[in-house]
Design a protein around this nucleic acid. Structure first.
Lengths: 228, 228
DNA sequence: TAGTAATAGACCGACCGTCGGTCTATTATC
DNA sequence: GATAATAGACCGACGGTCGGTCTATTACTA
């Protein structure tokens, strides 16, 4: 047997890469540790040298995704030309752009995370993501409240409310995706558009913003994403 | 071996009872089918006679809980003396009363459902509960919109927004519960009170209701629940 | 400083215990 | 006699363990 020794963190990253591919494609429960090591070209022993358990691998994956997500958002807070509403809109515009640009991967992600049998995967990632997103959103609201661009007494609580709304919309996107993949793209797009509209309205209302100031969606977005 | 034959649905209900006890106490994944049948005094063969799988048992449990929850809410819709806001307040008052009256069981439920290792249990029950709660809430909003007591264009979408908010608050209640059980009842109560306040505010805002028209909490509620 | 001994830790894969689920045989019920 | 209900031995798959090997680096010696 050829034996290739690499630095530990290269190994861990490789294992997390494999985990991401396999967990997302087949689900966490349906992926065995043997699958992972076969894909990574390692042995059981090596795996348990780097990770204490299969769960630990999942946690590492979740943590890495959270880190990446934070790195993408962070620049927004540094931009001085934006006020609270501007930041929120930039956030939504970002996520919109990414959804269209990386539609295939994103679709795959949604399909993986919200598949009913993938609850464990979903939970761990949601947890990790919330952990970084909540402080971020809180900071946006706190500053917006300070400068008076939006109305969020108790910014952290309000931030959580916004994240809860977003999570619900993500679930709806999954449903639309399913419907679109079943062939019914047009009506799925119409449905998704209407939900996004309501989502935007809810966000505006929660922050007491005038109608039309928040743009979570734009004409044709749902179709662009679903048909991509 | 004594052999006690009962009517089938008595058996299924007994099995669901055991499942409820065991899943809630030890979690779904940590409860084995053998645990369930030992508790129920049945054999493997009997179990697989009534349920196709362990998952099927979980689904039956979730369905039963959803049915019970709907039965509790339904009277509300029949009461003609209430308008949209009145129904919402009645709903919140109901759940408040129940939380205090049945604090021990409710606490147990929260602890079980939101425990990190119980994601599967949580998801299935959330799914089943949403399935009955969403149409119910939609109907409340639809009527409220019709009679002008609240502002919910696209009642179903807005209903979902409200349920998403509620779910987030449930998670916060779990956190408060943990903190209270760790001994810090007072500060847990203070925290929970403040989150409930924000929750109420968010609900009001989403439905464009004047501040103070929705009462999701009341003075001393958090302490009453947590200290019970 | 070259050569060697010692140590750390990366890595291997056979093996184990547990668990969900199956199968066949037996017993109750109508 | 047919069918529903029950028993429990058994199976295969899976997560995880364990004894041990191999390599690269460090410490020691002459």
């Amino acid at each position: 047997m050829t034996r290739i020794v690499k630095s530990p963190d290269i190994r861990t990253n490789e294992l997390i890469d494999c985990a991401q591919r396999l967990f997302f494609e087949h689900g966490y429960e349906n992926t065995t540790v043997n699958d992972v090591i076969r894909e990574a070209g390692l042995s059981k022993g090596a795996f348990y040298h780097y990770f204490a358990s299969k769960e630990a691998l999942l946690e590492a994956l979740a943590a890495r995704m959270a880190r990446q997500s934070l790195d993408e958002m962070r620049p927004l807070l540094e931009d001085p030309s934006l006020d609270g509403v501007g930041r929120l809109n930039a956030l939504f515009a970002n996520s919109r752009r990414m959804k269209v640009d990386m539609a295939p991967q994103l679709k795959n992600t949604y399909n993986a995370l919200f598949k009913p049998e993938n609850t464990v995967l979903y939970h761990r990632i949601d947890e990790a993501l919330t952990e970084v997103t909540l402080p971020f959103m809180t900071e946006i609201l706190r500053r917006g409240q300070e400068e008076g661009s939006l109305d969020a007494p108790d910014p952290e609580a309000m931030a959580l409310m916004l994240l809860n709304l977003r999570l619900g919309v993500a679930k709806v996107m999954y449903r639309a995706l399913q419907q679109a993949e079943a062939g019914d793209v047009e009506s799925a797009a119409a449905m998704l558009d209407s939900w996004m509209q309501s989502y935007g309205l809810a966000v505006e209302r929660v922050l007491k913003l005038p109608e039309g100031s928040i743009q979570v969606t734009e004409p044709g977005f749902a179709r662009a994403f679903l048909a991509a």
